[in-house]
């Protein structure tokens, strides 16, 4: 996509923003300074005027934000504020929920992922996801990691592939090792790659899920409260990993814990009840000097 296209998109976005203001649905903060915030680097994901309805329930209201590449973006807010819904819009996992309807655009590297004819397989290869509770497959550790590449035909292990010499065990081994290494799990499991993944501890399972996601070589990694089911030590390992991953990947992480957001993220978006994005800025700015009174109340624990 050319530079002018991007500029156009941005202008459109500002327009629609003012429209939503005139309808009176959004509160005064929408026009505050942060709306022009564009994050630190090149924009990876641009979300524009995103509305989500679950049946008659309006779960997200006109959310717009630009997510910069190779950084950590935290989404925080009280339960039911729509932050997980927002996250699931970014790889179209909301398509699974049939009552959900999504309006607006999400642009990944200049391509709208909600236009007709989008290949969901290709999208999800590029936008990986890690879930709230660890969900390894009831298979061996090795199979868990190589699952994605196998399904996409990048690695072949079947009987036929072996017969015709297309199977490349060395490549699979290398990919498994590299992904586990990157997820800081290799040292712990290198001797038991053929054990069932369900035998790992919760923290290890979650790092396995991250490794599984990395094996597909995504650009963006979405994490939905990845540490909420884990103990403090496992949590801190995951947090270190997130910071580390941001060197190569665009990480978007939903979290319940403000400390976690403050520790790991470069920019933070605050969602408050009713599915509005209230403020989005550098993490430091949000936690030290937020624009909005509601965000300040929320952060200081007076509200939410």
């Amino acid at each position: 996509m050319s530079q002018t296209d991007t500029a156009e998109t941005r202008t459109n976005r500002t327009e629609s923003q003012s429209v939503s203001t005139t309808t009176g649905e959004t509160v005064e903060e929408t026009q505050a300074e942060w709306t022009t915030y564009e994050g630190g680097g090149e924009t990876k994901l641009a979300v524009d005027d995103l509305d989500v309805h679950y049946g008659s329930d309006h779960a997200l209201k006109g959310v717009s934000m630009d997510i910069p590449e190779e950084s950590v973006t935290a989404l925080i807010g009280p339960s039911g504020c729509g932050k997980s819904t927002f996250l699931r819009c970014l790889n179209r996992m909301n398509d699974r929920i049939r009552a959900a309807s999504v309006d607006g655009t999400v642009t990944l590297d200049g391509e709208n992922i909600y236009q007709d004819g989008v290949d969901l397989v290709e999208l999800r290869k590029r936008v990986g996801m890690v879930f709230q509770s660890p969900n390894p497959f009831p298979k061996s550790i090795r199979e868990n990691v190589s699952y994605g590449p196998r399904k996409h035909g990048d690695i072949e292990t079947g009987l036929l592939a072996r017969l015709t010499g297309r199977a490349d065990p060395g490549r699979e081994e290398a990919l498994v090792e590299q992904s586990l290494e990157r997820a800081a799990l290799w040292e712990e499991v290198r001797d038991r790659l053929d054990d069932n993944a369900l035998g790992l501890s919760g923290g290890q399972q979650q790092r396995l899920c991250i490794a599984r996601c990395l094996a597909v070589d995504p650009d963006v990694i979405l994490m939905d409260e990845p540490a909420s089911a884990l103990d403090p030590i496992a949590t801190s390992k995951i947090e270190d990993l997130i910071e580390d991953l941001a060197e190569d990947y665009t990480v978007v992480v939903v979290t319940h814990s403000m400390q976690q957001a403050a520790r790991v993220s470069d920019q933070t978006a605050v969602f408050l009840t009713g599915g509005e994005l209230v403020e989005y800025d550098d993490t430091e700015k949000i936690f030290e000097n937020p624009e909005s009174q509601r965000v300040e109340d929320y952060i200081s624990g007076k509200f939410g």
Binding site: L108, D109, E111, I113, Q115, G117, V118, D119, E122, L123, R126, D217, D219, D248, Y249
Partner: peptide, 10 residues
């Protein structure tokens, strides 16, 4: 991580 070839979404 930059890709050498980027498959189009559509």
């Amino acid at each position: 991580m930059s890709r050498v070839t980027q498959t189009a979404l559509v």
